[in-house]
C-alpha cells in the first residue's frame, strides 16, 4: 500500500504541476500548488510508515507553511487585483523586463 500511496502522490503532484502550467487564473494556480503540496504530504505520510513519526511531523510543518503561504499569497492576489482589475496572469507580464 505504501507503493500505491507513493504512485498516487506522483500522479497527484504531476496533476498539480499540469494545473499550474496551463491555468491562467492566479487563484486556481494557487489551488494547484496546494494540490502539489498535498501530493508531497501523501508521500511523507507513506514514508513515515517506513522510517517513523518524523514524516508526520514534517507534514505538520508543511501544512503550517501552506497556511502562511495561502495568507500572504492571497493578500498579494488581492493587491494585484486592485491594480489590474483581473487575476489573469497573462496580464501581469512585467517580468518581461
Amino acid at each position: 500500500m505504501i507503493t500505491q500511496a507513493l504512485i498516487l502522490s506522483a500522479i497527484l503532484f504531476a496533476l498539480g504541476t499540469f494545473g499550474v502550467l496551463v491555468r491562467r487564473n492566479a487563484i486556481i494556480m494557487f489551488l494547484c500548488i496546494e494540490l502539489q503540496l498535498n501530493a508531497v504530504n501523501v508521500a511523507f505520510v507513506a514514508f513515515s510508515r517506513l522510517v517513523g513519526i518524523e514524516g508526520q511531523v514534517f507534514v505538520f510543518f508543511v501544512m503550517t507553511v501552506a497556511a502562511a503561504e495561502a495568507a500572504v499569497g492571497l493578500a498579494i492576489i488581492i493587491s494585484i487585483f486592485r491594480h489590474y482589475e483581473t487575476v489573469n496572469v497573462d496580464n501581469f507580464n512585467l517580468l518581461k523586463w
Binding site: 499550474v20 502550467l21 491562467r24 496572469v89 497573462d90 501581469f92 507580464n93 517580468l95 518581461k96
Partner: peptide, 14 residues
Amino acid sequence: FQTGTVNTYAFVLS
C-alpha cells in the same frame, strides 16, 4: 521564453 507570464517560467522550471 521571457513571455512575462508566470506559466512559462513554471513550465521551464518543470
